[in-house]
Design a protein around this nucleic acid. Structure first.
Lengths: 324, 324
DNA sequence: CTGTTAGCGCATTCAC
DNA sequence: GTGAATGCGCTAACAG
């Protein structure tokens, strides 16, 4: 509540001096500094960040847009992004779009209004144009939003190939592939790569498309039921972790032996893959690194520290569980 | 970039008029309004929220403090809090304390600096005094921080009793109870209530204390192993969902039949309880309602809409899975 | 109905 | 070294 002016008055000095003393910028004699500090303490002075923000036209806040915080992948991602931003002196503002692109848009607008210094987006409801319109710092995860917007993602194609190799080692011949709906995200590469490799080796690949980034467990469960009902003869499943877990669940319910009867492989190696029994075999992307790289890339832009590459691809690896 | 003054100049009117026109406050003739809107569009004007914030001394941001976003309970909680805040025109700033109370403190400080209009805290690393010092709006989830800080929580005692009833129905006699470490949180009530009820009915209750709100799956898993190693004769387990799931996992690994050999009951009914097989029986608290009530209570304070009660207790219910 | 003015609280010139 | 003045962009009160 106490303003800098009151502190100045109390200390019997000018506001400028107080500002310099408290920010350690410019020269202030030790004695006046002492007086000022005493006055500040006495009045219980706290600088009003809003005034500062206005002056600097910067808030130190980064917006993070994800489809659904309840999805374990995004929960981990946001956690690590928040931690990394914190390390670098920034705060995290969050937005669950839950599939509503209007919400995504509104957060983009906050960039223009200077409420946030930059945005990291991992949501894909909006058309690219809305993003390319922006001139302020944006970093995209897993979807190419065009020139000027750095893209960070993992090597989905390699992930798909690794999964295919596991399937081939287990000699699987009829695979069900569960992919997402968004046409433009990098995640699709894993399904293409997987399918290609399986077909090359003479396996049959059926495909299901599902809305994966909105987290509705029921939907996954219904899908799993349907898959097994319609195709009781499949011997392999590859999809996102949650879809894979739903299928694992359904397979167990049907009394199938895992992995004797069927191989189930997920993608992302999210936390729940370690909660199920047997533990799910999954392709891991390094979420911590993803977060770190995303944050650093964004802050390079925000603080104009250096030029950033347009595309950054991280490695993936196999998490060996008991389902492949 | 364009300021209100430039719009005024372009439209040939005063800044006040532009402000009124664009905010719909006060009277502006249709013609001047039109001129202003044209000028605003031409200059691609976007109001600078920072200036507004300074004037109003308000940001429309609410800080949410949780121990760990990766924990499914907090992920759900934050998701729903964010959605509710959004409905009411507020933005969500987030903080994972990951057990570091300094981080909790820093977010509290942001209240003083006017960076946030209020705080919802579900983290409990800091001493109560740090909170009671504050004069600005704070709402606490699951821990009583003293007068002036409304407390929202579920009926843990009832939850503990419900769990005990399930154990008694299954005729369990030797139970392992896995509770958290924080001494002052409401969650402890469920363990007390459970223990009392079980002992009344002649059952033996052993107890393990563990740091539950920092999410380390490995720690849960090691604990589960140890419990079964040291006490292979227990026939019931009650604890938070993650601890319960870890035990379920270990029990399955040991070839136990569930729920024939042992009853396992969790608390919170988080999403992963539906991912394991068999689905975990758990005491559900209504996270959506918890979020809604927390947000509304906080905003009642922020906007001084009305007086709020100090304590709000929500109901719990049994989620029937296959482990009890 | 509209233009002018005075802050919101702070940080930075620039004289002194 | 320090104080006074200026402005960040906007809103609200006031005079016209």
């Amino acid at each position: 509540m106490a303003s800098i002016r009151q502190v100045a008055q109390e200390a019997g000095v000018g506001v400028g001096t107080v500002s310099r003393a408290l920010n350690g910028s410019g020269y202030v004699s030790p004695e006046t500094r002492k007086k000022i500090e005493k006055a500040a303490k006495k009045l219980n002075y706290t600088p009003n960040e809003l005034a500062r923000n206005l002056y600097h036209n910067k808030t130190g806040i980064v917006g993070v847009i994800v489809p659904d915080l309840e999805h374990p992948f995004f929960a981990s991602l946001v956690k690590h992004i928040e931690m990394e931003l914190y390390e670098q002196g920034y705060k995290t503002m969050i937005c669950n779009t839950v599939g509503i692109s209007r919400r995504e848009q509104q957060y983009l607008d906050m960039l223009e209004r200077n409420m946030v210094d930059g945005i990291i987006t991992a949501s894909h409801g909006l058309e690219m144009e809305e993003y390319t319109k922006q001139t302020k710092p944006i970093v995209s995860i897993d979807r190419d939003l065009g020139a000027g917007i750095p893209l960070i993602g993992c090597d989905h194609a390699k992930g798909g190939e690794l999964a295919a190799e596991l399937m081939l080692q287990a000699n699987r011949k009829k695979i069900y592939l569960i992919s997402g709906v968004s046409p433009k995200v990098m995640a699709n590469d894993r399904y293409h790569a997987f399918k290609e490799k399986m077909k090359e080796n003479g396996a049959v690949v059926l495909q299901e498309v599902m809305e994966w980034n909105i987290f509705h467990w029921d939907a996954h469960y219904r899908m799993a039921e349907e898959i097994f009902r319609n195709h009781p003869d499949i011997d392999g499943i590859f999809g996102g972790d949650l879809a894979a877990i739903a299928c694992l669940n359904e397979a167990l319910r049907r009394g199938m032996q895992i992995p004797k009867d069927i191989s189930i492989i997920g993608f992302d190696a999210t936390v729940p893959t370690n909660m199920v029994y047997p533990q799910l075999t999954s392709i891991r992307q390094n979420v911590e690194l993803l977060a770190e790289v995303s944050v650093n890339t964004l802050l390079d832009l925000v603080e104009q520290r250096k030029n950033v590459p347009h595309r950054l691809i991280l490695d993936v690896e196999i998490q060996n569980g008991g389902t492949a």
